[in-house]
Every structure is written in C-alpha cells, then in structure tokens.
Amino acid sequence: MAIGFAVIAAAQAGHILWVRDSWRPEMIAPSGLSPWLDPARITIALTADQTETLAVAEEGLRDGAVDLVVLELTAPVGLTAGRRLQLAAQAGHTTGLCLIPEGMGSPAAETRWRCAAISDPDPTEDSTLQNWQLIKNKSGTIGSWHVRWSRAARRLTVVSRAGE
C-alpha cells in the first residue's frame, strides 16, 4: 500500500522522479494513476541494483529539478547511504520518499509512515479508505489517521474512525 501513499504524495508535487530496480515484475500502471496525477509528470529511472538506485536518488534529490523522488527499496539502507540521502534532500530542498518493506527503515528518515488499506463497511463511492500511521517523527508527535482520497476535490480527507 506504500505505492498508494507515494501516489498521494506525488499528486501534490510537480515533477516526480521514480527510481526502481528494473528486474521488479510489478509496475505502476498509468491508467490507474489518472485519478491522482498526470502520468506524464513521472520520469522513471530503471536501475540495475540498489546501489544504483541510491546513487540516482541522491543525484535527483541534490539537483532539485524534481519535486519528489520516490525510491523503491528492497534491502535495508546503511547509515552512510541514509545520511547521504538526507544531506542531498536538504541541499536540493526536495522530498525523498523511500518505499520500504516492513522493518527496514533508515534512522536518517525524518518521518516514517505505515500505510494499510482498510475495508470500508459502507462505501459511498469507489472506496479508497486507508489507515496511515506515523510511526516515527523526528520533529513532532506520532499518530494514526483514517484517510480517504476524494476524487472530486482531488485531495485527501481525514475521516473519523468507524465506531467512534
């Protein structure tokens, strides 16, 4: 569900650099992206391994020509690599978003989120109800929200929890 989070983050950004290993079989589909953003805004970099992924992401973050760099990671990021990404993001004033499997977070991350789709007992439209948990935050508190993407308004709405 991390891709859903990335797409909602990308919907508010301008140009997006999406870095992923070329061997991964699953693929974000532009037809599915259209409720959130125009697929023409995405540039995809296909890399051979994670070392290249990190190098390309660092270059993109430092340059600042794109507004958001999304990395799909498959292995834990070392301390040095994490710090390099952090410095690059600061230098370029660019947001970097690492999509990581559970429990592989880098200590360099400013915030870390866990996202899960949750079932919607009474959907009004095509449901996109999700649960977003902020599980790490260097400069604030953590929390948990149920959110829904509103297609008409093209923005995220926070909904109250079912049963509360």
Binding site: G4, M27, I28, A29, S31, G32, S34, P35, A40
Partner: peptide, 17 residues
C-alpha cells in the same frame, strides 16, 4: 510527454503478472 486519456473503467494502480 504525451497526455493520457482517463480510462473508462477503474484500473488498478499496480499491475503484476
């Protein structure tokens, strides 16, 4: 860049084999 026309039916965000 070329524009995409929105799909007539909802399409998934992730496609895999």
């Amino acid at each position: 860049p070329k524009p995409f026309s929105p799909p007539a039916h909802p399409r998934p965000l992730i496609l895999f084999p």
